[in-house]
Design a protein around this nucleic acid. Sequence first.
DNA 1: TTTTCGACTGTTTTACTAAAACGTTCCAAA
DNA 2: TTTGGAACGTTTTAGTAAAACAGTCGAAAA
Lengths: 193, 193
Amino acid sequence: MKTKDDIRETLINVAGNIFSKFGFKKTTMDEIADAARKGKSSIYYYFSSKEEIFGAVVEKEATILEKKILNDINTTDDPKEKIRKYILARMNGIKNLGNFYNALKNDYLSSFESIEKLRIKYDKEEHNLIKKILQEGIEKNIFYIKNTDKTAKAIVTTMKGLEIPLIVKDNKYKIEDRLDDFLDILYYGICKH
Amino acid sequence: MKTKDDIRETLINVAGNIFSKFGFKKTTMDEIADAARKGKSSIYYYFSSKEEIFGAVVEKEATILEKKILNDINTTDDPKEKIRKYILARMNGIKNLGNFYNALKNDYLSSFESIEKLRIKYDKEEHNLIKKILQEGIEKNIFYIKNTDKTAKAIVTTMKGLEIPLIVKDNKYKIEDRLDDFLDILYYGICKH
DNA sequence: TTTTCGACTGTTTTACTAAAACGTTCCAAA
DNA sequence: TTTGGAACGTTTTAGTAAAACAGTCGAAAA
């Protein structure tokens, strides 16, 4: 017998499939209900609104991405390599999460408060993770960084810049091709020493 | 007596004011004509289409920005300082040019071919300018760079990332506050040496 | 000859409306 | 506890006639 949580999860998966295809606005509660073989109003027994079920979908995807990233960076001990793996995993994840993010943007120009809160939460986690890698690099005597907080901020912002071609759906853009040029600057800078 | 070119330029200025306020789509040829105290069809004596006069406006603004940038970076001989001045001038310029760029984006999702060509042209000029500064730095024994072309590409991409908060109109965002953290990484990297 | 513009053309946008679809609630049944 | 049919108020859509639009033309003014 299926528990309440099981059905909730099924609904999240079903809804996720439809949302990723049609975006938030063009997905109707009826469609989700039909695909889940339920009555439309039954969904309201599990979620209080369309926005809430969408938020649950996004949160699930983000959690999967986070796990994948953490897993990837733990395949190495070298902080330099960790940063590399981090950026690669993140960029590849963005391609998928970007679907949801974009779907939102195109539907409503302003996103929801609940999603915005999620974004801020993951931004903070991202910042802390980078910071941790940097500190690890300092301890291992590999990095020399005056202010890990500011440096992490700079790296995160730069990474967001790298992401744009992905979100704008520039298909010919290959991260791997450019990543090493970036890392080279990030690690060693351009000044003589 | 005003020459044809004089009137053309007046029209560009008048149109520029209106375009920057209302964007491409919401600006009508009648409005431009009225503001210039001309009949609408007279404008077609100077420009072949609405798109052409818009292109002329954008080109003029871009040229002004380019002059300002070139002027700024020539106030110093230090390549490091040149890059700093370049980014500052560029970012501040984007705030204004962003008006036009955004106006276009919000009106039509896809921009015009003619504007796209301009963008590509200025992207190339930007790349070459950065490359020139880098080479100057190498000659002066300040920079150590394996591949100036790839490095210039990396810097330009990073700069585009820095621009986003400006285009998204994040008013509290101050470039100056973060610029030096970026430059510190760009110049010296994060690795011990 | 160079420049201007009123009148015109075909197309696109707007303003309006009624009908359909939507998210959400309610409540009785399972 | 869980389900879904019916109903509610709101939003979106489809359709349409009128207005506004970009662009043309040819005659007149400079």
